[in-house]
Design a protein around this nucleic acid. Structure first.
Ligand SMILES: [Mn+2]
Ligand SMILES: [Mn+2]
Ligand SMILES: [Zn+2]
Ligand SMILES: [Zn+2]
Lengths: 158, 158
DNA sequence: ACCGCAAATGCAACAGAGTTGCACAAATGG
DNA sequence: CCATTTGTGCAACTCTGTTGCATTTGCGGT
């Protein structure tokens, strides 16, 4: 089996189980001339599908056994942010959260924080216009955080 | 010099070294009916004199030998924020910073968070009207957080 | 001036998030 | 297929903050 037997064009999967067909995440990586590694693809794919920004812990839990090494995950997340493929943010509890950076998914909408279950919901409602600021202040972003009870937590009570 | 020689009204210090004359910080504590403890007075005094928001580490270093216990310092800072005498903020490196709150009102106005120094500024601008929510969601409070660079952090750059 | 008790402190151990150094593995270009 | 560059895994470590519990202390009441 040393010599390549098949002159087949790049189409279906090999006799093996793994199908290296290009995922959107992998494409995004190649697009910036970066190495395509399983860890990066898995994490970026997850972030792209995630409805809300994810912490290191979130990602580790979501990936389960495929999460790989803790430190590698930190480095991948950090790298993604550095490479511009994800955005980094520190929340009120000092936890860093990451979100896929493509065309501002979490850029222009509101977040609702459920105080009961802690879930964060992305709302379609556009944010209000940013107000005037004192001289010398430079506005980077405005975030309207709504706090209360979500529908799920709200229905299970008196 | 054991017996008090002067029939002076309450002004100077006693025969002892310690002068319990009311510091502004102590006054602020009494004003809200809180216990006046050395730790609280020292920390609040420091925060009031500080030109920029201070982290736990900053305070500990600044107070030197008078800093007391690490945990107590955490609790004092936390308490000051809870009591409305200081504002809390998380800076870009995940470090919580505190600043003396000159006025204790955080009711009906906006907050500007400096991403560099972590300071929280209270703006006079009234908050925008809360938006519509999906069915089942109950709004408890809405907070418009403005993020960017404050005037102080903004001026020290190219 | 003295008591009593809630509130604050000190100490020690713990927890979570993120970092560093280094040996080993793997991606990519040739 | 090889060489080089880059990423990964592991262990140990730092930093920030927390929790439990015994002891002290501020302060209101007597
Ligand atoms: Mn969102
Ligand atoms: Mn305020
Ligand atoms: Zn909920
Ligand atoms: Zn600032």
């Amino acid at each position: 089996m040393a010599t390549a037997p098949s002159p087949l064009p790049p189409s279906a999967a090999d006799a093996d189980g793994a199908a290296p067909v290009a995922s959107p995440a992998a494409a995004a990586l190649r697009a910036i001339g970066a190495r395509v590694t399983p860890a990066r693809v898995r994490v970026l794919t997850l972030l792209r599908e995630a409805p809300t920004p994810m912490s290191h812990h979130d990602v580790e839990t979501a990936l389960g056994p495929d999460a790989g090494d803790r430190v590698t995950l930190y480095r991948v997340l950090d790298w993604l942010a550095e490479a511009g493929l994800a955005t980094r943010g520190v929340d009120a509890t000092r936890v860093t959260r990451y979100a896929a950076a493509r065309d501002g998914k979490h850029q222009n909408h509101l977040h609702f924080h459920c105080d009961d279950c802690g879930q964060v919901y992305c709302l379609d409602t556009p944010p209000p216009p940013p107000p005037e600021l004192p001289a010398g202040f430079q506005l980077q972003r405005a975030e309207l955080d709504l706090h209360g009870q979500c529908d799920r937590c709200n229905s299970g009570k008196a």
